[in-house]
């Protein structure tokens, strides 16, 4: 077994070393180029691999998806925009679109806000590493793990029975003797599921924002404090503007994760009880119902949903580039 293990790990390290070695060799050789050639070579060699991977791994599949979205379930009959009319005409999909919208608005904002508050507060505490690690820990737990954890939070039992769901038990400890069946309570259940997302992602937001706050030059906060800014005013007038671009990055990242979210929904409700979201519905259409056309159309909608986000970030980035 150890022989087997060392062969596997040896191969892996060999692959990494080979990969880095080839890159270094290429860099070394290309480093001899001069003038315009050097610049072109740099663009080609440094950017080329990423662009190629993206083309093969994402652009081509995306194009294929768009193409498939115009066809029927097994791609044998051209439907035009039939799958899109289905998506906009189906009342189930309306619910899905509404839920997706709720998710991408609420979850990222709450995650980022909470992460920001924690970043501000935690940095000033003794033993911050412990707090940070504990809050960050959900990031390290797989979705399978997370869904088990939350199953034992939201599980429902008849109030007369011993409870296995923590939330119900807490309600009962506090005197609410008839808590609802959480996961069935629409639209509350959507928010309960969002809490899982927030629970997982807040650590990420906190860690990144905390690093950004620490990077604010001390003299700026110092000057503001001397000017009399305290607490909230310091936060609103100095801290927030200084880390604005990081906030946007965190918000964007969490939002995109949210859009692609399907594990939580899949394991917690399977998309039932009015909690379905676009990514999971797309997965179902593609892999349970084998309807490539509808799945493709939903994927395109998912893509379109992110266009405003992309546009906003593009504008921000351009502004930043300009200032630079």
């Amino acid at each position: 077994m150890w022989g087997d293990t060392s062969i596997k790990l040896g191969n892996t390290l060999g692959a990494v070393a080979g990969f880095l070695g080839v890159l270094l060799l290429l860099f070394y050789l290309a480093g001899f180029a001069r003038g315009r050639l050097s610049r072109r070579l740099a663009i080609l060699l440094l950017l080329g691999p990423a662009v190629l991977l993206l083309l093969v791994g994402i652009v081509v599949p995306a194009a294929r998806t768009i193409y498939l979205s115009l066809y029927n379930e097994d791609s044998t009959k051209f439907l035009g925009f039939g799958n899109y009319t289905w998506a906009f005409g189906d009342s189930d999909i309306h619910q899905v679109l509404l839920n997706t919208l709720l998710w991408i608005v609420i979850a990222p904002i709450l995650t980022t806000a909470l992460g920001l508050v924690l970043a501000l507060l935690v940095d000033r505490l003794r033993g911050q590493a412990v707090y940070k690690s504990l809050i960050f820990m959900p990031m390290a737990i797989s979705f399978v793990g997370a869904s088990i954890i939350w199953k034992f939070v939201y599980a429902y039992r008849d109030p007369s029975q011993p409870q296995i769901g923590l939330l119900s038990q807490i309600c009962m400890w506090f005197g609410w003797h008839n808590p609802p069946n959480w996961i069935l309570s629409h639209p509350l259940n959507n928010f309960l599921l969002m809490i899982i997302m927030i629970w997982v992602q807040t650590g990420f937001a906190m860690v990144v924002l905390s690093a950004a706050i620490k990077a604010i030059p001390e003299d700026i906060t110092e000057a503001a404090v001397l000017d009399g800014a305290q607490g909230w005013r310091l936060f609103a007038n100095v801290t927030i503007p200084m880390i604005r671009s990081t906030i946007i990055v965190v918000l964007t990242t969490v939002m995109i994760t949210t859009l692609k979210l399907f594990d939580i929904i899949r394991t917690m409700t399977g998309g039932n009880f009015g909690t379905q979201v676009l990514a999971n519905e797309m997965y179902n259409q593609a892999f349970t119902e084998f309807n490539n056309g509808r799945a493709g159309a939903l994927a395109v909608l998912l893509f379109l949903a992110v266009v405003p986000l992309v546009a906003y970030n593009v504008a921000m980035l351009r502004k930043e580039r300009e200032v630079r």
């Binding site: 993206l54 994402i58 599949p61 995306a62 692609k260 797309m282 997965y283 994927a299 998912l302 992309v310």
Partner: peptide, 14 residues
């Protein structure tokens, strides 16, 4: 910007 926008392509599709 293309790189940025492609973040959202669900990997299931690929």
């Amino acid at each position: 910007f293309v790189f940025f926008a492609l973040q959202v392509v669900p990997l299931q599709m690929a």
